[in-house]
Computed example of a mutant assay.
Amino acid sequence: MDELSLEDVSGIRGTLALFSHVFDNAEVADLGRVFTGDAVIELRRGAGRVVRGLPAIGEFALSLRPHGPDHQTLDSHIFVDGEGVVRARSRYLAVLPDGSVHNGDYLDVLQRTPEGWRIELRVSVPRYPLAEGVFR
């Protein structure tokens, strides 16, 4: 794929926006509207964590309730890389239960499915507080 249509970009933006609503509210039945069935989330904050597959992503979302972060996704740049892979880089802000804020980047690989655009891989890279070794 060399270029994305406006319809593609709109669909991808919708998927990226839906993440915070579905994940933060642990609406597990709707996670398939955001992620592919075999999606992977890689968290690079602290010791890190890899979550594989929609059932595990649902368990992860539920494990954060009721005191999980409140995510805001913004400034998404959507593009096709040199190998034809559809990617998005988004900034996020996460308000933690104590009122402190954590932020970083989501580095996503997206896949067009019959139901629409879905996240196949999400790598969450923290910015502040700065994780050791991430930007050095």
Rank of each mutant, 00 (worst) to 15 (best):
residue 88 A to W: 00
residue 89 R to Y: 02
residue 82 G to F: 03
residue 52 R to A: 10
residue 44 R to E: 10
residue 28 V to Y: 05
residue 117 W to P: 02
residue 127 R to T: 15
residue 33 R to G: 08
residue 25 N to M: 13
residue 59 E to N: 06
residue 6 L to N: 08
residue 133 G to I: 01
residue 47 A to G: 04
residue 87 R to N: 09
residue 10 S to W: 03
residue 129 P to Y: 06
residue 60 F to S: 12
residue 81 D to C: 10
residue 108 D to G: 00
residue 110 L to H: 00
residue 46 G to S: 12
residue 19 F to I: 02
residue 15 T to I: 00
residue 63 S to F: 12
residue 23 F to M: 09
residue 73 T to W: 11
residue 96 L to M: 15
residue 131 A to T: 15
residue 8 D to N: 14
residue 127 R to E: 15
residue 2 D to V: 08
residue 107 L to D: 06
residue 50 V to H: 03
residue 29 A to N: 07
residue 113 T to V: 04
residue 90 S to Q: 14
residue 54 L to S: 10
residue 105 D to S: 03
residue 128 Y to S: 15
residue 54 L to F: 08
residue 117 W to I: 01
residue 98 D to T: 13
residue 72 Q to M: 13
residue 127 R to S: 11
residue 46 G to D: 11
residue 73 T to I: 15
residue 11 G to N: 03
residue 136 R to P: 08
residue 81 D to E: 01
residue 12 I to G: 06
residue 71 H to Q: 11
residue 94 A to I: 14
residue 56 A to R: 07
residue 6 L to Q: 10
residue 36 T to K: 04
residue 10 S to F: 09
residue 43 L to V: 07
residue 27 E to I: 09
residue 131 A to F: 02
residue 35 F to R: 01
residue 58 G to P: 14
residue 56 A to E: 14
residue 105 D to M: 05
residue 66 P to S: 09
residue 97 P to N: 10
residue 130 L to A: 14
residue 120 E to I: 07
residue 98 D to Y: 14
residue 83 E to I: 09
residue 136 R to H: 13
residue 1 M to K: 14
residue 122 R to D: 03
residue 20 S to M: 05
residue 116 G to S: 08
residue 54 L to P: 06
residue 104 G to T: 01
residue 21 H to G: 04
residue 18 L to M: 06
residue 123 V to M: 00
residue 94 A to G: 13
residue 131 A to M: 14
residue 109 V to H: 13
residue 6 L to H: 06
residue 5 S to W: 03
residue 86 V to Y: 00
residue 117 W to H: 05
residue 69 P to A: 15
residue 71 H to T: 13
residue 109 V to S: 00
residue 101 V to S: 09
residue 74 L to V: 12
residue 3 E to K: 13
residue 26 A to R: 13
residue 56 A to N: 06
residue 125 V to G: 05
residue 133 G to S: 08
residue 99 G to K: 08
residue 11 G to W: 01
residue 85 V to T: 12
residue 22 V to G: 09
residue 65 R to W: 12
residue 40 V to G: 03
residue 57 I to K: 12
residue 21 H to N: 04
residue 120 E to T: 07
residue 84 G to I: 09
residue 85 V to M: 02
residue 21 H to Q: 06
residue 18 L to W: 04
residue 111 Q to V: 03
residue 135 F to N: 11
residue 29 A to Y: 08
residue 130 L to T: 11
residue 4 L to S: 10
residue 42 E to I: 02
residue 121 L to G: 01
residue 2 D to L: 12
residue 83 E to W: 05
residue 58 G to W: 08
residue 9 V to P: 01
residue 19 F to W: 15
residue 85 V to P: 00
residue 112 R to S: 02
residue 69 P to M: 11
residue 12 I to H: 01
residue 74 L to F: 03
residue 109 V to K: 11
residue 42 E to R: 14
residue 110 L to P: 03
residue 25 N to C: 09
residue 123 V to C: 01
residue 128 Y to E: 14
residue 95 V to G: 04
residue 117 W to S: 02
residue 85 V to Y: 00
residue 22 V to E: 07
residue 41 I to Q: 15
residue 25 N to V: 05
residue 10 S to C: 02
residue 69 P to F: 12
residue 49 R to P: 00
residue 55 P to R: 06
residue 3 E to W: 10
residue 129 P to H: 12
residue 100 S to L: 04
residue 21 H to L: 07
